[in-house]
């Protein structure tokens, strides 16, 4: 057991390192038999070196789909990226040839999934699967691959890594499997890791271990981290900046402190007011009324208006753009000033 005195949160780093990723006006839709599902409806964000961007949203907000689009792992059909740009170090991934894109995927941008048990292939040993990364991308020999795999497993703090290289995924606990996934993602020294609900399936003490590991690795390598989650606590813990998503759109974005201390969008405000806190007892929770909309049937105007306490006539018809609230901070609410003034 270690009592990890947390490193003093780095003085606001956003924008200091190299710009790694710039997503602008990304749209993704799924064409199903039951109609078109508008999973992502124009989201934009940037990610720099050493930066952690949290994409915060509930199920059906499009947060995972947007990450899959960046990775280029959306099944087409039924999924189509219909609009937008995804620039990695200035180059648009969407207009790249598939072969070039494959080189970026895995090598420069890697992904960690929520469910490590299904993301790992049950019939190969974990060492084999990590070594595979080297064989495919670097043409390493089997032996070198295994050696590297053991090294990586050690780096993600899997105890007695050398002995466990030949073990199969089901022989690991949930937390250890997630470490194996992280090892695979790290294998080729990527610039960016996208972690899609990496700890949702894990217990809270294991979650702490994994988040701890991810921040340590980030400090070591300087990579950018995109963390997709619904957990406001995790975001407060690790993120530098936040995109709050609702119905496939970014409704608010900005530095994590600003958003947590004074939200500028009724949805983020509602989220904060609806969760119970470990350090507070009593008081009524103030839930957001209603339920998130189906992406196949997004309300017109502001998608949040049916649930919004601030909603007026204009909200039912005009979709709010992202208004600049402060430098590097936007809110997609017609009445953001009111929300901001109301405090929370």
């Amino acid at each position: 057991m270690t009592t990890a005195a947390r490193p003093e949160a780095m003085p606001a780093t956003p924008g200091t390192g190299d710009l790694l990723l710039e997503v602008s006006d990304l749209h993704v839709e799924f064409r199903t038999r039951r109609g078109v599902v508008n999973a992502v409806n124009g989201i934009s964000y940037t990610l720099h070196e050493r930066e952690t961007l949290a994409i915060l949203g509930e199920s059906g907000s499009g947060k995972s789909v947007s990450a899959q689009a960046v990775m280029g792992i959306i099944d087409t059909p039924p999924g189509y990226v219909t609009q937008g740009e995804i620039r990695y170090r200035g180059e648009d991934l969407l207009t790249m040839a598939e072969s070039e894109r494959r080189a970026v995927r895995g090598q420069q941008i890697a992904m960690i999934f929520q469910d490590a048990l299904t993301a790992l292939n049950p019939v190969y040993s974990v060492g084999w699967q990590i070594a595979e990364m080297y064989r495919v991308h670097r043409g390493s020999s089997r032996k070198v691959g295994y050696a590297k795999a053991a090294e990586l497993m050690d780096r993600v703090r899997i105890p007695s890594a050398k002995e466990r290289v030949k073990d199969y995924p089901h022989q690991f606990s949930g937390g250890m499997r997630q470490r194996v996934m992280i090892a695979m993602a790290l294998a080729l020294d990527p610039d960016i890791i996208i972690a899609d609900e990496p700890t949702t399936a894990l217990d809270v003490t294991v979650q702490a271990q994994i988040m701890d590991l991810l921040s340590t690795l980030q400090e070591e390598t300087g990579m950018g981290l995109i963390l997709i989650t619904h957990d406001l606590g995790v975001v407060a813990d690790v993120a530098d900046k936040v995109c709050v998503m609702y119905a496939g759109k970014v409704v608010e974005r900005g530095p994590v402190r600003d958003i947590y201390h004074n939200t500028a969008h009724p949805y983020s405000e509602g989220l904060m007011a609806s969760i119970p806190r470990l350090d507070q007892k009593g008081g009524q929770l103030h839930p957001i009324k209603g339920a998130p909309p189906s992406l196949a049937n997004i309300p017109p105007g502001c998608p949040f208006h049916p649930r919004c306490p601030y909603a007026r006539e204009v909200c039912t018809t005009d979709h709010p753009p992202l208004y600049d609230v402060a430098p590097r901070r936007q809110s997609a609410c017609h009445f953001w000033e009111e929300v901001l003034a109301g405090g929370n």
Binding site: V235, D237, A239, R257, R277, L278
Partner: peptide
């Protein structure tokens, strides 16, 4: 358990 407040965290 992370607390949803960056300063406390």
């Amino acid at each position: 358990v992370p607390i949803p407040d960056p300063d406390i965290e």
